[in-house]
Design a protein around this nucleic acid. Structure first.
Ligand SMILES: [Mn+2]
Ligand SMILES: [Mn+2]
Ligand SMILES: [Mn+2]
Ligand SMILES: [Mn+2]
Lengths: 142, 142
DNA sequence: ACAGAAATGTAGCCAAAGCTAATATTTCCT
DNA sequence: AGGAAATATTAGCTTTGGCTACATTTCTGT
């Protein structure tokens, strides 16, 4: 056996522990770039949860240094939050483009990539990038 | 916009809600087929959690009709549990083989597939199967 | 047979993420 | 200015899924 039996599942649990933070900072960055500011309401709609849940989640993000908030003011990203947002967004984009290149319909690719992105090792991302490039090459030749 | 903004995340949450059940029944079926019976200890080791956590999880699985237990006896799958185990196992196998066919090293593919499997739509699985077949074809030609 | 080891069960703790209801603040419109 | 609408906060609840500590039961080797 290559690795200890339980190690796979430890990784999954760790992936899930950071998943919400990644999706939130990614969403916050996107909403700010699109609308100038990001309000709790925007996030509640985006994630289809109550605004109370957003509030509590934002509280954890602030505790962990990803966002800065003041009462009744829009959410802002810290430098740490911006970095995580960029990384998450880039990774998400790779997974989405990969699925599309593989032939998955856009709607399904959009949904599936939202979950898959959090479980991709560097090995897997590298292979996905390579596949995208190859497909692009084939496209151009046509 | 193709779908409502929050629908993606609803799907992710639903995926995660069934994830543990899928992994457990899959593991139980595998352990039974390998060792004859499946005990809590086997699952605790497999998932790298305490035996108490296994106990509570098994309790939920029983409540939901996937397993049958009696005190101090090994865990058994119901028909419903066996069905879910087969489906989960087949799906997991597709994802694992797909990653390997894509060029991901075995160790990373084993880890990543454990998380990715729960987020693949039928669309994505179909494309993965097709890719595996194409790769197999290319292998045979060589 | 029985002592000790291994497995299982119980009690009680915690954090994350979801919710509703009620309250408070800010913003916007007339 | 004043009231309505939007937004944010607080209180208090739930389920899931993790843990340690301790108690009980079963298995195993001599
Ligand atoms: Mn994302
Ligand atoms: Mn995501
Ligand atoms: Mn899994
Ligand atoms: Mn996941």
């Amino acid at each position: 056996m290559p690795t200890s039996p339980g190690s796979r599942h430890r990784r999954i649990r760790s992936d899930h522990a950071t998943e919400l933070a990644e999706d939130y900072v990614e969403a916050i960055a996107e909403i700010i770039s699109q609308q100038g500011v990001c309000r709790g309401t925007d996030l509640a709609e985006r994630f289809a949860v109550s605004h109370v849940t957003v509030n509590r989640t934002i509280g954890r993000l602030e505790r962990d240094g990803y966002v800065k908030t003041e009462p009744y003011a829009p959410v802002e990203l810290t430098t740490k939050g911006q970095r995580l947002a960029s990384e998450s967004s880039a990774r998400h984009e790779i997974v989405l483009q990969f699925l599309v290149a593989l032939g998955v319909p856009q709607a399904s690719a959009a949904i599936d990539s939202e979950g898959i992105e959090h479980h991709c090792s560097e090995d897997t991302l590298r292979c996905m990038r390579k596949f995208i490039e190859q497909q692009d090459g084939a496209q151009n030749k046509k």
